[in-house]
Design a protein around this nucleic acid. Structure first.
Lengths: 342, 342
DNA sequence: TTTGATTTCGGAAACGTTTCCGGAATTATC
DNA sequence: GATAATTCCGGAAACGTTTCCGAAATCAAA
């Protein structure tokens, strides 16, 4: 709209140099004297020249963009993750293109299969559905990939950097609930294979699973928590504790229990996972496990960017963070609340 | 990594045609027979050829990308907005690059000033700081822009599509509070010029403003609400209602009031703005104003994409959505709660 | 000064597309 | 079956950079 496009050639002509020299000036290249550089920089300023990114990308085969594929930016800790990734990327001069897979298996496959179409130098993916062929596609993607993994144990031969929790969240929760003397422990979450490890930890912690104490909803929403509470409340013999797959569900549970006149934590203890900001706002405050979303995301981004920058192939990093249990009112009654395990 | 790059020339050679013809096949171009097209498409499949986006962009001057600049993806309704924009963009074959301005005036200016560097066909910006020179920069950006406006009345000559609320949120809240008989109405928010219109509505609704009833915090967080509650509670003469700039602040307020033994809504009514999902989870549930984030965002995206597609210049749309007040427990005691104004 | 070593610079060839334009092949018309 | 009208196709010129390579200019050493 504003006038005609000004190119590197215009700059060269104005400054009385060759285009190669202008290019060198732009990219802090070698072999250019200080004085011509400043002169060129100055005429660039005057003409308000902006290098054409497409032409640059075409030549250098790098776009300075990475893709971030998450299930749904609206959920739980994902905004934190998106934020952390964007910050890290920006610090390295990279832009982030957002992709929501809706936790849809096909969408997850598609994004890695078609990653080449996306015009990016790398991909950070946080899977939810973990479709069978995902690892295979990752291995042949031809583009550096970092995986943010909250769901499921992955093949250690996966050709991608993987950052995850140590998968001990569930164990932490279950140990805590047993330790405070609960014996009829229920589970509330989504389909068992969605965040598999959270559910598997539940099974592992019990001698035998009472199927009536397991509630699988459609998602991780507040509503799932609400429905789970209704379900448990309708049972002939209610649980005395619920391990919720995340804080949203935990809050939904607690809230509905309150409405139903069930006392938390006296009659039912509830513990969530994520340790999001609402845990301290809910009443009672929610015991939860901190899963360090920002740290995990930042590291995933750093690893990816390093791999891109240094053109590393192979030698993939597998990093685990340790979750921390934060005990609050929903699992321990007031006098002991707000203390924190280590 | 996987083999050498396969280009349009390889496809042409394999299919025994010219590259121009391959290009036509890719782009559903005119002047190509059905049979050669299918043949070419087939060899494209065989060679798993992917057109180089940079080369295309260089030639066509379009990148199929738009930028979305928001204050902070972690806050309030912004995830909803990001989601809606991404969905709309995807439906039109566009990708979204995320930018967080942190509500920082410099960052907001920078993103529109340097939009050309961003490699995008258009920009959706949701300002927060509204720096003085922003409109001027928008006018000379040279790239289509949609503004998602929640903060402040904008010059109607602004050369951008603008989607916003009708700015009646504040008025709705104030009318409601007066109607339920409150007279000492307080305001809790951020600096008055940040979401200016929300505060201005407060002033407009009152004959005179009692400065002691206005609390300006640092942000819209739960903490700001908590601190505001402490502040109001410390007053010699407490307010009997608080209009909170958003739900986060409202929830922070309600929660702290509860801890301080102040009864909501009997002693103090609290109303927020945003109508986010936590309003119904909080206890008491929060009366709030729905600001239709998703609808606003979707429309902003559609307008932008249309402008890009049809290369429209000028003739800018200014659309307003009407907010709706949702009355819940934090402003009206239980028996009358959960009803809904129109 | 001359010579040689070292900087600094410019021309031109990519990079992988799209698209204009002219020519070849096909179809329609008589 | 010849000609005209159409359709289909290919060559080649962009698009705006980066970078190789050789030439020119500068500097150091003799």
């Amino acid at each position: 709209m504003t006038s005609k496009k000004v190119t590197i050639e215009d700059v060269a002509r104005h400054a009385g140099v060759g285009i190669a020299t202008v290019s060198r000036a732009i990219n802090n290249g070698e072999g250019i004297s200080a004085k011509t550089r400043t002169r060129i920089l100055q005429t660039i300023e005057e003409l308000s020249f902006i290098p054409n990114t497409s032409a640059q990308s075409l030549k250098v085969r790098l776009t300075n963009q990475i893709a971030l594929a998450v299930p749904d930016i609206r959920n739980a800790i994902i905004p934190d993750i998106a934020w952390a990734v964007e910050q890290a990327a920006k610090a390295h001069g990279y832009r982030v293109v957002q992709i929501n897979t809706a936790g849809n298996a096909r969408a997850e496959l598609e994004v890695v299969r078609d990653i080449k179409k996306l015009h990016v130098d790398g991909l950070i993916i946080m899977p939810l559905a973990y479709p069978k062929t995902l690892p295979e596609l990752i291995n042949k993607a031809g583009v550096p990939i970092s995986v943010i993994n909250y769901g499921k144990q992955l093949d250690s031969a996966l050709q991608a950097d993987v950052v995850c929790l140590s998968m001990l969240e569930g164990q932490l929760v279950m140990e805590h609930l047993k330790q405070i003397g609960r014996s009829r422990i229920a589970y509330a979450g989504t389909q068992k294979d969605v965040i598999e490890d959270r559910y598997l930890a539940y099974e592992r912690a019990l001698d035998r699973v009472d199927a009536s104490l397991v509630y699988f909803g459609d998602d991780f929403s507040l509503q799932t928590g609400t429905r789970a509470a209704d379900y448990f409340h309708g049972l002939a013999h209610m649980p005395d504790a619920v391990y919720a797959v995340n804080d949203m569900v935990a809050i939904g549970l607690v809230n509905r229990f309150k409405e139903l006149g069930v006392r938390v934590p006296e009659e039912v203890a509830v513990v969530g996972v994520d340790n999001n900001q609402w845990t301290t706002i809910s009443s009672p405050q929610i015991s939860s496990v901190s899963i360090m979303g920002s740290e995990v995301a930042r590291l995933a981004a750093e690893l990816l960017l390093k791999r891109i920058r240094e053109q590393i192939i192979g030698d993939y990093e597998k990093v685990q963070f340790e979750p921390r249990l934060i005990v609050r009112e929903s699992s321990v009654s007031l006098k002991r609340s707000s203390m924190q395990d280590n």
